[in-house]
Computed example of a mutant assay.
Amino acid sequence: MKKLVAYITTGYPDKNFTVDLALALKEAGVDSLELGIPFSDPVADGPVIEAANLLALQNGFKIADLLEVSAQIAPKIDTLWMGYFNPFYHRGVDFFLNKAEAFGVSGFIIPDLPHEEAATYKEAFNEKGIALVEFVAPTDSPERIAEIVKDAKKFIYMVAYAGITGSDRSESLEPVIEAVRAHTDTPLYIGFGVDEKSAKEKAKGVDGVIVGSAFVRILLKENLTNSQKIDKISTLARSIKEQINE
């Protein structure tokens, strides 16, 4: 069965809501959850996730909120931390690794940490048994893909196109998929622009999909109550999980 990974912005509208939504997504069939760490300059994200990041920061998000949420949900749903390298560098990668190990967080997704620089931290991640998720993209050569994926853990994040999250774009991904499959059995998931309209098509040839903007777009709807947001996001998650497994 193909997997569904859901991204949500931690602390928006508040940390208690994040916990409730995470547990509802588990019930809706989500296999893994990316807890997004709000950051002021999320360079890989489009306007939807960027808006949620900024609102969470305006509401007073602190790293302590991420830790509190993670302690409650990581024992119940496979949890990864998704964030930009600045907060990890500022507080120290070892700080986050120790906390992740304590809570049971299974991996980190850091889109602005290049593969070559990530190598500096791989030993520390491996010692803790925590994955540092690798990225591949249509712009990568077969040789570079071979280098990136050879020691990949947990899953490989395939970027659907060069650009930012949430865009409605497509590129030929068969060469990327073939290059990955030639060098590793690590599951390959596709992200960027995956929603209820595109999930079935984009799931072809891969092991799972990563959905963010489609869920966060509902988070941002001011005319919905918190319970309505959770219901709508859960319904969307169920629909996407069914579509990718038809």
Rank of each mutant, 00 (worst) to 15 (best):
residue 237 A to E: 03
residue 180 V to W: 08
residue 212 G to Q: 00
residue 10 T to D: 02
residue 115 H to C: 07
residue 31 D to W: 05
residue 177 I to N: 10
residue 141 S to L: 11
residue 51 A to H: 07
residue 244 I to S: 06
residue 242 E to T: 15
residue 46 G to R: 01
residue 36 G to T: 03
residue 134 E to P: 00
residue 150 K to N: 15
residue 171 E to Q: 14
residue 43 V to Y: 06
residue 233 I to N: 06
residue 124 A to D: 02
residue 76 K to A: 06
residue 32 S to N: 10
residue 163 G to R: 07
residue 231 D to C: 01
residue 10 T to C: 12
residue 52 A to W: 04
residue 82 M to D: 05
residue 69 V to A: 05
residue 116 E to C: 08
residue 201 E to M: 05
residue 56 A to Q: 04
residue 190 I to T: 07
residue 89 Y to W: 13
residue 121 Y to H: 06
residue 29 G to R: 09
residue 160 A to M: 03
residue 31 D to S: 08
residue 54 L to W: 02
residue 66 L to D: 01
residue 102 A to W: 05
residue 64 A to M: 10
residue 176 V to L: 06
residue 37 I to N: 02
residue 86 N to Q: 04
residue 184 T to E: 12
residue 135 F to N: 03
residue 221 K to T: 04
residue 155 F to W: 14
residue 124 A to S: 04
residue 216 V to Y: 01
residue 207 D to K: 10
residue 116 E to I: 06
residue 81 W to G: 04
residue 147 E to G: 03
residue 202 K to C: 06
residue 136 V to A: 11
residue 180 V to T: 10
residue 112 D to A: 06
residue 53 N to D: 13
residue 24 A to T: 14
residue 136 V to P: 14
residue 9 T to W: 04
residue 219 L to P: 12
residue 167 S to V: 12
residue 84 Y to I: 01
residue 160 A to C: 07
residue 20 D to Q: 13
residue 128 K to Q: 07
residue 202 K to R: 15
residue 58 Q to D: 11
residue 5 V to N: 12
residue 164 I to R: 15
residue 131 A to D: 00
residue 190 I to S: 09
residue 105 V to Q: 11
residue 116 E to T: 09
residue 240 I to A: 05
residue 234 S to W: 01
residue 18 T to K: 08
residue 123 E to Q: 11
residue 143 E to D: 15
residue 6 A to R: 07
residue 122 K to M: 12
residue 202 K to N: 11
residue 181 R to S: 13
residue 34 E to W: 03
residue 39 F to I: 05
residue 178 E to S: 15
residue 234 S to E: 09
residue 105 V to L: 13
residue 148 I to E: 08
residue 144 R to S: 14
residue 146 A to M: 14
residue 144 R to Y: 15
residue 143 E to N: 13
residue 206 V to N: 08
residue 78 D to T: 15
residue 174 E to Q: 15
residue 34 E to C: 01
residue 90 H to T: 09
residue 173 L to N: 11
residue 207 D to P: 14
residue 196 E to V: 09
residue 164 I to F: 08
residue 37 I to R: 03
residue 100 A to D: 01
residue 133 V to D: 07
residue 98 N to R: 10
residue 128 K to T: 03
residue 172 S to N: 14
residue 172 S to T: 09
residue 119 A to S: 05
residue 36 G to W: 08
residue 60 G to I: 01
residue 43 V to S: 15
residue 73 I to Y: 03
residue 45 D to L: 07
residue 76 K to W: 03
residue 206 V to F: 08
residue 93 V to L: 13
residue 33 L to I: 03
residue 67 L to G: 06
residue 68 E to V: 00
residue 64 A to E: 15
residue 71 A to V: 00
residue 53 N to R: 05
residue 138 P to R: 00
residue 112 D to K: 05
residue 95 F to T: 12
residue 197 K to Y: 06
residue 222 E to A: 12
residue 91 R to V: 10
residue 23 L to I: 13
residue 105 V to I: 15
